[in-house]
Write a protein that binds this DNA or RNA. Structure first.
Lengths: 347, 347
DNA sequence: ATGAAAGCGCTAACAC
DNA sequence: GTGTTAGCGCTTTCAT
């Protein structure tokens, strides 16, 4: 088998065996040009029989298209990027497009190296992803001679950008709590320097009333504990807590349990991110807002493909809806409210 | 700038401006052939001045080397694969090698598609990674006409395979507990169908004594709780618990706290995986065994590079050492045992 | 020391 | 309908 190493079948071989010229073979295989159906079929069958697979490099060299795109990410932890990647891959794999993974750890120099390498390798486009929608990657992609799509990271104003709809997600969560009959809602979330925090807090206030409190702190379980300690010092503690992420929510739920407050009987809790590992391990499992990151990746893949093919794509920011994933930290009887459930999941 | 799209500088341009032939230019830039130092420098400088970047596809076509490798993974969750990827990238990026990310969700068909795509794109080698060292990917890579390295997944006997040293990691953890003066050690771990579970349990028993109990269960926090419930029914509960992963360890620590048992005063707990998000959020933060997955990725990267360059690489399974990361769930005074600390960290 | 020319494997004009 | 020919951008003998 070692001898077979260099013996890859070329289109030349197919042509010879099929008794045609390489040109005809090429056309036959690519369904271009004109010829007898018989010839076309014959060529295709010999190609199949010989196990011919075209050399993508050679093809790229002439076609000016490599069927390869680059995925630039600075989310080394992968919590946000991973689902996005999965979606991108899903959208591109059956189009024969491969993805170069380029992890730049917020490092401009590393970013430049990767971008240069991609350019050298003639990628058809670049998808940039990050962990915050209000931060840019440390590399400038705006002057590149190829299409760029920004997913879950900030891009130039005239770029194609994809983000999830923080406001809508927060609104759904808040309305869900209100629909449950909760009256005293509080939003415990991350630092207000995050754009997504403001967006969610804004939507929360709009739905819950301007008087509803919003508490900012770090994105940690510890902050969830601290927030509960603070809230339960008041005369009338809340009966529903909407958290900025699942870690805070887990801290909140744990703190409540330790305090003897029953979740969901006494207090409903909702998280954000739907990070399975946290949401499912919480006792009780967290109802949480899912940002649909995989779908976001899929859309990004489709868009970069369209751009690479020269199809027109409207620039601007596209927001994709979030989805509330109901587990047990809220209470309420799902089966008794089928309409509402459909309403929320039918997005 | 849109016009510049097609105006990539070719070696032809460099040659013309430098006043030499393309052949000379090529040699000058690649530090091959023989010529005046003056000529070489001049060519290099014009190339730099013109911003020349060689077309990797064209180069690959002639050189039979694409400077591209494929990363096949079935760990969609990314907990194990992600650090491995980071290591691979780190090892390859400065060698100018790019990585194709191929996520196959334990799906043989998807796997084949990706492998074929990689072959078409002339990758110089493939690194296969998974989430278990005793499971194979659903694709056969053994007959491929290019080098393959298996990292954190099972490969054929004669392949180059990388795994972390479960036994050594478990031994270090156990010895650490013993060194702390703990007497009644218990190992609470995952299903014994996992090879790594057996390896760790074996090492644990060897170090802690054959009488030391090993409890198997699911890889979940809930199992940690259950195990504690079970253990504390006995007349003499353990004073040290070594857990098979951090989630179990977190469950154990939480259960102990709820029971009023002080960690680390009364009981020392050690986890496995050093999954930051779990280990750091536990109260108190978990001491845990780190599998050094990033280093494993680095080594995999170097090996696939060596193989691609035709350098000889001894086949077989290579085990990489784990490292105990000390936090606060064990007690003991770090500063008082500098030797031991060095001993463990100097790996 | 330098350059002309032949290819790497494929596609695409343009003849026939 | 099918084949001839000329590249894509680069590397690499082999002359000179």
């Amino acid at each position: 088998m070692d001898v077979a190493k260099a013996e890859r079948i070329r289109i030349y071989d197919v042509a010879r065996v099929a008794g045609v010229s390489v040109a005809t073979a090429s056309k036959a295989l690519n369904d271009t040009g004109r010829m007898t159906d018989a010839t076309r079929t014959r060529v295709k069958q010999t190609a199949l029989a010989l196990g011919f697979r075209p050399n993508a490099m050679a093809r790229a060299l002439t076609q000016q298209r490599s069927f390869t795109i680059g995925l630039l990410t600075n989310d080394s932890y992968g919590r946000f990027t991973l689902p996005v990647m999965a979606g991108i891959n899903e959208a591109l794999v059956d189009q024969g497009v491969s993805v170069f993974l380029c992890g730049i750890e917020d490092d401009a120099a590393l970013g430049k190296i990767h971008v240069d390498a991609m350019l050298d390798k003639q990628v058809d486009g670049i998808i940039a992803t990050g962990k915050r929608i209000d931060r840019r990657l440390p590399v400038d992609l705006s002057e590149l001679p190829l299409p760029v799509v920004y997913a879950f990271t900030e891009g130039p104003a005239d770029a194609v950008t994809l983000v999830s709809d923080d406001a809508q997600g927060a609104r759904e969560a808040t309305e869900w709590l209100l629909g449950l009959g909760r009256q005293r809602l509080v939003h415990v979330t991350g630092p207000d320097s995050f754009a997504s925090v403001s967006a969610r807090a804004g939507a929360f206030r709009e739905a819950a009333g301007a008087a509803a409190a919003v508490l900012h702190g770090p994105w940690s379980e510890a902050w969830g504990h601290a927030a509960v300690a603070q809230l339960w010092q008041q005369e009338t503690p809340p009966d529903a807590i909407f958290c900025g992420n699942d870690q805070i929510a887990r801290g909140v739920v744990d703190a409540l349990r330790e305090r003897g407050v029953d979740v969901p009987a006494d207090v409903s809790v909702i998280g954000f991110d739907n990070w399975e590992i946290v949401a499912a391990a919480t006792r009780p499992p967290l109802t949480s807002v899912d940002m649909n990151l995989k779908e976001l990746g899929r859309v990004a893949g489709r868009l970069i493909l369209d751009l690479a093919e020269g199809k027109p794509v409207e620039p601007g920011i596209r927001t994709l809806p979030c989805k509330l994933v109901v587990r047990q930290s809220c209470g309420g009887d799902m089966l008794a409210r089928p309409n509402r459930q459909e309403e929320l999941q039918g997005i």
